Amino acid sequence: MNLFSGTLSTLEQALNYSSLKQKVISQNIANADTPNYKAKDTSFKEAFQSALGESVKANKSDIRHYDFKIGSSPVQGIVTRRNASYNHNGNSVDLDKEMADLATNQIYYNAVIERVSGKFSSMQNVLRGGK
């Protein structure tokens, strides 16, 4: 019997993604003045595919349908933004965008933490017998 029905593991993956995004944003901000540094970003698609592993199988009913391709990236879900150069020194870090991403990620993290807290509160309520 699966006690938690996969919800906590899904929330754990969401927290891992948020943590990875935080690290990438921090790295971009730290290298904002580094010449020729290319900003990095997290790809939800890459992170989702790595979480799925190789377990996705699908039958195509039409040759025009897309194939499911699970690719592997060197680091889970991190991609480099190559086609942008914002500074005269070849650096592609946009501090305004990074700060906005940082705030968005913080809101996402807080929402996931609230869900985890709610799950544990529900379990605690069940263990106490609804009292």
Rank of each mutant, 00 (worst) to 15 (best):
G118E: 06
I78D: 03
D94F: 01
A111C: 09
V126R: 00
N31L: 06
N28T: 08
V112M: 01
M99G: 07
S5Q: 13
D33W: 15
Q106W: 05
G53R: 02
K69R: 12
A39T: 02
D41Y: 11
T7M: 10
K131R: 09
K97D: 01
I25Y: 05
L127T: 06
D33V: 02
S92M: 05
D101I: 00
F4R: 11
Q124S: 08
D67F: 11
A30C: 05
R128Y: 12
S26F: 02
V56N: 13
D96P: 00
Q124G: 03
Q124T: 13
R81E: 02
A100C: 09
F4M: 14
Y17F: 04
N91S: 06
I107Q: 01
S61Q: 13
G90A: 06
T7V: 13
D96I: 01
I63V: 15
H65I: 12
A39K: 00
V112Y: 03
S55L: 12
S92C: 00
A47C: 08
F48M: 14
F48K: 11
L102E: 02
D96L: 03
Y66N: 12
K23R: 14
P74N: 13
L95C: 09
S61H: 15
Y37L: 05
Q49P: 02
Y109H: 03
L20K: 03
K23G: 04
S43R: 06
S85N: 15
N36I: 06
L20A: 08
Y66E: 13
N59D: 13
